[in-house]
Nucleic acid binder design. Structure first.
Lengths: 335, 335
DNA sequence: GCCTGCTGTCGAATCGATTCGAGGCATCGC
DNA sequence: GCGATGCCTCGAATCGATTCGACAGCAGGC
């Protein structure tokens, strides 16, 4: 069932069918009605490949996700679903491509095979090979997180520096003097993963500004690791009364360790940070934290990409999202 | 940069370039070398839309995920990543489509617009509108879970009935007499979601066979709900010594409730079930459970789909996976 | 009554690949 | 020396849409 068959049944030419559907030229009401009737009867839809070939665009975008090896965190996974939903609202389909090692072929197929009109790149590093390839191939893309040359690209990012700093100030205002940061895994920090870097910088800067005694540590994205990390931290710094974390996956372990060591939250130790809302609410007691606005980020990323696809020549733009701290009940003045 | 340009530069016709790449007809070694050299120099890749139009297939598959509204469980999310990886190994791209309500358009675009050669349908219900539409449109598809007419379709499923039954028998063998099941949310059970139904059936059948006193309850996919559910269960059945669950998201809450009520695992209460491996390992103590083999399921689903796409006429086939119970340390004889 | 302008429709070119039939050119056998 | 046989390569048709130029028919202005 193709456009020719529709044209035949409606007694018009193929071009008239096309115009009736797209509205790019006037078609008389009677003809239009007849065509739509036939289309409805047989359940016709234009072939996506043929249309893409003729139009020179595919009406699809690529979403490059982090390597499958490292398990995706719930935040990242929620983000994928939100991107798909936001793209759907603009009649765009989403092609998934894992990145890294053996999956380069998939990336190549997508980009050089012109399978997509644009790409959203998740978890970008400060210097990022995929971003460089996209830039050189001329495919419009939006990065989640920014690369070293922040000024030249399109990106959406969360202001981890500012958010972690306000967590620190929140603790300082309550009277805490000795605090710690539980960051994302060390290999992410070392490979120049922006959020981890900026969380650390924001933590150190704000702690220095308030002359707090501050310790920063890294922790794998797992509950068991969070438990160990929390124990080590308390062993090294028994006087600790305030904790900031950007590692949501570690939260259950942190909670477990504190309970086991008999440190009540928030009576004896306050906990805050930047994590997905779901995780903050499942913490015990509910975590006072800046909730990562993934739905927002997904929507802004798709908006930005759509804009860039529509007008390829436009100058770089970016969105740096912030988010107020939601006061729940995991922070209090120190004992 | 298209095939014509490559042909021009290599001094051959377009068809020769095509044959050199596909190997469908012999091309002399010298010509072939010359063509590949040019292709390598300019970084050419065939345009995916043009190829799809000519070949009549897109080399892409669709993955229909559960509605974004209901949060995806970690198992489902891991499954998405695994499907993408498995498809990538077969040079297939993956298009994501949310299902339900407002996202019908996306489904329609994919299926009727011939954007994909086949579809994997997640979280299928016993009677499922999406499966019916795929069947009528003639697009090959593989369901995760099976529909009411199990014999007529392609599907991959986990033997929840058998697995939950062996959990029950495991508890019975240890000497437990009073056990309970914590199932997935009630609305899933009521809407005919297979795993929830079969878990319940398997639980009841095995408990009856061993004449155990058994209670089954449903629980939303959330930690806080798990906590409440566990409390209610113990209030109603103080003599409970064995627990089976297929709700991984509830696990942290179950753990919390048992700890708070002073019931040690496994000394006073044994816990087992069917959950993602990651969750079993993060439980405290590590959960003796049948690990959901998502990577396996993803691979089998892609295999089955590829097979069906290659030979559309083949008779229905399905794979019912089982999985041995991994003995960890959350079960013991009753006190 | 003729020219102008507008509306609605058509035919043909185009997008970039694959694939089929046909034919050129050696090589080989007799 | 001539026809048959393979091996390579080419030209043209095809896939199913979009889009542009052309044109028929009709209304309105002078």
């Amino acid at each position: 069932m193709n456009i020719g068959e529709i044209a035949r049944r409606a007694g018009v030419s193929r071009s008239t069918v096309s115009y009736a559907l797209s509205g790019k030229r006037a078609v008389s009401a009677a003809t239009r009605r007849r065509i739509l009737q036939v289309i409805d009867d047989v359940g016709y839809r234009p072939n996506a490949s043929a249309r893409a070939l003729a139009e020179g665009r595919t009406r699809a975008v690529g979403l490059v996700i982090p390597p499958a090896g490292r398990r995706l965190t719930p935040i990242q996974l929620g983000f994928v679903a939100d991107v798909v939903a936001a793209a759907g609202r603009r009649e765009l389909d989403v092609l998934l491509s894992p990145s890294g090692g053996e999956h380069d072929r998939s990336f190549e197929r997508m980009v050089r095979g012109r399978r997509v009109d644009g790409v959203i790149l998740m978890e970008v590093r400060l210097r990022d090979a995929r971003a460089a390839r996209l830039r050189e191939s001329g495919v419009p893309f939006v990065a989640i997180g920014h690369t070293a040359d922040a000024a030249t690209g399109y990106w959406v990012d969360l202001d981890y520096h500012g958010l972690v700093a306000s967590c620190v100030r929140h603790l300082a205002d309550l009277g805490h003097r000795e605090i710690a940061l539980i960051n994302r895994p060390r290999e992410l920090l070392d490979s120049g993963y922006g959020p981890a870097r900026r969380a650390l910088d924001g933590f150190n800067a704000a702690a220095a500004a308030r002359s707090l005694s501050a310790t920063a540590s890294c922790c794998p994205d797992e509950a068991t690791a969070g438990e160990t990390c929390m124990e080590d931290l308390l062993a090294a710094r028994p006087g600790l009364t305030g904790l900031v974390t950007v590692n949501e996956a570690a939260l259950p372990g942190i909670e477990r360790a504190l309970r086991r060591l008999g440190r009540a939250i928030p009576r004896q130790i306050s906990v805050t940070g930047v994590v997905g809302r779901h995780w903050a609410e499942e913490f015990h007691p509910p975590l006072t934290a800046a909730d990562v606005p993934i739905t927002d980020m997904a929507e802004r990323a798709v908006d930005l990409l759509a804009e860039r696809m529509a007008e390829p020549g436009t100058p770089p733009r970016h969105v740096l999202l912030s988010q107020p701290i939601s006061l729940r009940s995991s922070t209090a003045p120190p004992p």
